[in-house]
Design a protein around this nucleic acid. Structure first.
Ligand SMILES: [Zn+2]
Ligand SMILES: [Zn+2]
Ligand SMILES: [Zn+2]
Ligand SMILES: [Zn+2]
Lengths: 131, 131
DNA sequence: GAAGATAGTGTTATAATATAACAAATTATT
DNA sequence: AATAATTTGTTATATTATAACACTATCTTC
């Protein structure tokens, strides 16, 4: 197996690096055009890197924006994500609220069965869009 | 203004009717091919109808599936949606749980500001996929 | 270290999802 | 009837994502 130490590969590092430096969710084709000078020339290279980064938890997909953000390392629940999204500018932050995360993780359906994961997107207006 | 009584137009009714008869989230192009015999021939006709139906609350978009479902009329919170999605077969049901809906509606960010909307997607395995 | 397994890469092409733009038809208001 | 607003039909295109295949690099184990 490659990457015995579970290290990221070159392309994965390039993509992650760009996402981490962005202050907003970034789209796959924006990533592509911004890292093309580093050698990633075609969509599959970006999407493959994204797939792996999401798998290892370094990146999350914001479904309602078709965009990607770096994990802020405050993922409380391993199988759940919570985001606060500005409806006006798309500014997005990962919400780390233990009570909310626990409430969602513990939530059971009407048959009493627990869910294996969740994604919560909270919509509002960010500080700078309010002023 | 057309539709004084806020009635749905012909195309909107056709699209809604098809979504309501489906037992799973349906994709826009699946809607298109299924209602083409009723006169809707191009994507914009479907997407326009969907836009309106979502606006009036008759339809919700399942973001993680790029698919659409009819509202089960149990939307507890007007600005929030909760879905239970089977990871195996995409079977989706709208969750109506007053406690959960209230918890989410009342949730405030660290500045004490309430959000204006939310969408929660809960992932699990449906009954028939378990057996 | 050769042989095979596994994972990542580069590349081209194409699939799937969604919207822009504009002309024509319809309905509501005046 | 004239006007305005809305909906429709249509063509083209933009955006997002994956299939397929040949190739390379690293690891495993023999
Ligand atoms: Zn995270
Ligand atoms: Zn904002
Ligand atoms: Zn609903
Ligand atoms: Zn299922």
């Amino acid at each position: 197996m490659k990457n015995k130490k579970n290290e990221l590969t070159k392309n994965q590092k390039i993509v992650l690096d760009f996402i981490q430096k962005s202050n907003k969710p970034v789209k796959a084709y924006s990533i592509l055009s911004n890292v093309s000078k580093k050698g990633l020339k075609a969509p599959p290279q970006v999407y493959r890197a994204l797939e792996k980064l999401i798998e290892v938890g370094e990146v999350h997909k914001i479904e309602s924006l078709n965009s990607f953000v770096a994990c802020n390392s405050k993922c409380i629940e391993p199988n759940g994500t919570i985001f606060s999204i500005c409806k006006s500018c798309d500014q997005t932050t990962e919400v780390s609220n233990a009570d909310l995360a626990k409430f969602l993780s513990d939530f059971k359906d009407m048959n009493g069965t627990q869910f294996s994961g969740f994604n919560l997107e909270l919509f509002g207006t960010c500080k700078s869009c309010k002023t």
